[in-house]
Computed example of a mutant assay.
Amino acid sequence: MHWDDLRIFLAVARTESLSGAGKLLRVDPATVGRRIARLEEGMGTALFAKSPQGYAMTDAGQRLLTHAERAEQAMAGALEEVQGQAGSLSGQIRIGAPDGCANYLLPQVCTQIMAENPDLEVQIVALPRVVNLSKREADMAIGVSPPATGRLLVQRITDYKLHLAASRAYLKHHPPIKTLDDLRGHRIIGYIPDMIFDKELDYLNEIGVERVTMASNSVSVQFNWLRKAGGIGVVHDFAIPSGHGILKVLPDKISLTRSFYLIRHADDQRLERLNRFAAALSEGLRAEVARLEARS
């Protein structure tokens, strides 16, 4: 069995399709299919159950998965050892993050890291859901709560603040807001209730707001509604400086605190390259949150 066979096996296991694996590996899906068939023939057992819904691992495939992931870690460690651990970072690193962090923090933080490491490639996957590290959707992820299951390495990065906010234009043309009861006469912007993927994001329920009239699963869409004088919503303090005219509402009565966590594969802590990037990312995020919140 060759490492390249295991690499293709892992891609199909994680994407559950030949086309998905082909895109991941930049290989024709038909080639992926032939390689999987050859691997199954060589092992004398089916590794995947094929159906119109995709490729699901069989029991034999599940058993092979553990060994294939160990081989993947060993190959990554060997490459790192040969290339050396000193000097600048290189290669591709993919980060998964909720879109608030991905839009308002990660671009500037990663730009700084890449300025110091010109051979580094960074991909930011902004998803309004939890990033699946077990399927290698990313090398590491930023979450708003620590995962309860899985072989994962979890580190709290920093706390951040959120407040009710609205644009100056909206507040100028609508009734004044002096108490929480005054919110009833205003349009409320927030998440689509049944698409809140983490309880930590259920801000409006926490402050007693029951009805959302302008809703999106994207923080960026919500923020743009605020910028366009659409209504009032809960906003990250670190996003406010980019709003040009976004003002806090009832800041002395409503203030929320949440945390960002860096989540990694437990086995990846043996890879110095990822350790160094994770340290730089965490330090950069702490500094950027502090800088932007001071301006909000």
Rank of each mutant, 00 (worst) to 15 (best):
A279F: 06
L271T: 05
T257V: 02
V221G: 06
A11Y: 00
V289T: 07
N224G: 08
V209T: 12
L262A: 01
A56D: 15
R168A: 04
Y191F: 12
R34H: 15
H2L: 13
I263C: 06
D194I: 08
D5T: 09
G20A: 04
T66A: 12
K23Y: 13
A215E: 06
T111N: 07
G231T: 08
K50C: 12
A13L: 06
E72V: 11
G284Y: 01
Q222W: 05
L274P: 13
F197I: 12
G230E: 05
K23H: 13
L271D: 02
V12A: 05
L162H: 03
A126L: 05
R129T: 08
V209P: 02
A215T: 09
R70E: 15
G77N: 09
G100S: 04
D59V: 14
F48S: 02
E16P: 06
L47G: 01
A166M: 03
A30Y: 14
G231C: 09
L89G: 01
L204W: 00
D202V: 04
Y160E: 06
V125T: 10
F223W: 04
A76V: 03
K248T: 08
A266V: 09
S145N: 10
K253Y: 03
G54Q: 03
A30H: 14
G185L: 01
V82Q: 07
I177V: 15
V131D: 00
L281G: 01
L18F: 10
R26Y: 02
A37H: 10
S17L: 14
A46H: 01
R7V: 08
G143E: 12
S88P: 04
E116N: 14
A68D: 03
K172V: 05
Q62H: 15
A229K: 13
A68M: 10
Y203D: 02
R70K: 13
D182Y: 04
N117L: 03
G243F: 02
Y203G: 07
P251G: 11
H163C: 06
K199G: 11
K23V: 13
G22K: 02
L171T: 03
I263W: 00
I113S: 13
Q108F: 07
R70Q: 12
V235D: 03
E272A: 09
G87D: 02
G100K: 00
P175C: 07
D252I: 10
M195N: 04
N132R: 14
M195F: 00
R156N: 07
S51I: 04
L226R: 03
H186T: 08
K172T: 09
E41I: 03
P29V: 12
A126G: 08
P241S: 12
E206K: 14
E69F: 07
M114Y: 08
K23E: 09
E81D: 05
V109T: 12
R276A: 13
Y55M: 14
D99T: 08
S218R: 06
K253F: 08
E137G: 11
T66K: 14
G233R: 01
V235A: 14
A71H: 01
V125L: 05
Q222M: 15
L18A: 11
D59P: 14
T31G: 13
V235T: 09
G150V: 15
T149R: 13
G84R: 05
G143Y: 11
F223Y: 08
P98V: 03
A138H: 07
G245W: 06
V249M: 12
